[in-house]
């Protein structure tokens, strides 16, 4: 697989998996308004995924966007670990999304300047959506953190539990370094200080305590995931796998 293809899939997979997670909130939201908001976010994410998969398809020259989205096996997805974490309760989702959304905004700002025109265009477009997603998740994090005792306790726990998946976002492996030096990819590690600043600001407003940095989980860039991904993929791929000759 070419570097460019692999790199594009990493970005697409983040959007796909988080999109699938958010779609699970349909008819389950705490208010009807939130149902609409979360499905909206899901739609944006699938749109982003589609854009990146279409590019992957043109790079590959053979597989279609749907082939990439639906027909790879568990070890062939390269999304970050944090996006595959379960929705849990609304607080779990908001914490997961806030932490990822800050990263996504910073990532897309840089991607928008990529030497690869397509990635740059996709990055700029996705940035607008990522900004709105961050607005949604961070505002909710503040209301939940600074709401009732119960809500504060719940999201503090969510934050403590998911913290170990945040380091994964800022890793640079060989592929990342190559893509960055060729002016196409983003320096994830360089995003960390800005991410820290923004996250600390939000947590401050939310009156939440930033967890201690401890051991960070890793492996996603090699397709080593948590057990959650397998189940998500089984459900997602079911129809395509069951009817291999069918067109949808």
């Amino acid at each position: 697989m070419s570097n460019l293809l692999n790199y594009t899939l990493r970005i697409a997979d983040n959007a796909l998996i988080l999109g699938q997670r958010m779609s699970q909130w349909c008819s389950n939201g705490p208010t009807l308004e939130e149902d609409i908001a979360m499905v909206n976010i899901s739609l944006d994410l699938f749109g982003q995924a589609n854009g990146f998969y279409e590019y992957a398809s043109s790079i590959d020259g053979n597989k279609s966007a749907d082939d990439f989205a639906f027909l790879r096996s568990e070890r062939e997805y390269f999304n970050s670990l944090i996006v595959e974490q379960k929705n849990g309760h609304f607080g779990d989702t908001i914490v997961r999304n806030s932490l990822f959304d800050v990263y996504a905004v910073l990532f897309y700002i840089k991607l928008g300047k990529s030497k690869d025109e397509t990635l740059a265009a996709l990055g700029s477009k996705s940035l607008k959506e990522a900004k709105y997603h961050l607005r949604h998740s961070s505002n909710w994090l503040i209301r939940l953190g600074d709401g009732t005792e119960e809500s504060k306790e719940k999201v503090q726990t969510s934050l403590n539990d998911i913290w170990m998946f945040t380091g994964n976002l800022f890793e640079m492996d060989e592929l990342d370094s190559e893509m960055f030096s060729s002016g196409i990819g983003v320096n994830n590690t360089a995003l960390k200080p800005e991410w820290d600043k923004e996250v600390n600001k939000i947590l401050g407003k939310a009156k939440l305590t930033r967890p201690e940095d401890s051991y960070m989980q890793t492996g996603s860039k090699k397709g080593v995931h948590t057990e959650h991904l397998g189940h998500l993929l089984s459900e997602m791929q079911y129809l395509q796998r069951t009817h291999p000759d069918a067109k949808w």
């Binding site: 699970q24 699938f46 749109g47 589609n50 639906f70 129809l239």
Partner: peptide, 18 residues
Amino acid sequence: ITRAPSLRSKMILLAKIQ
């Protein structure tokens, strides 16, 4: 929704339910 068989059909169904 989670079992929609293509990206396009998934997005369309989501938009409809929204």
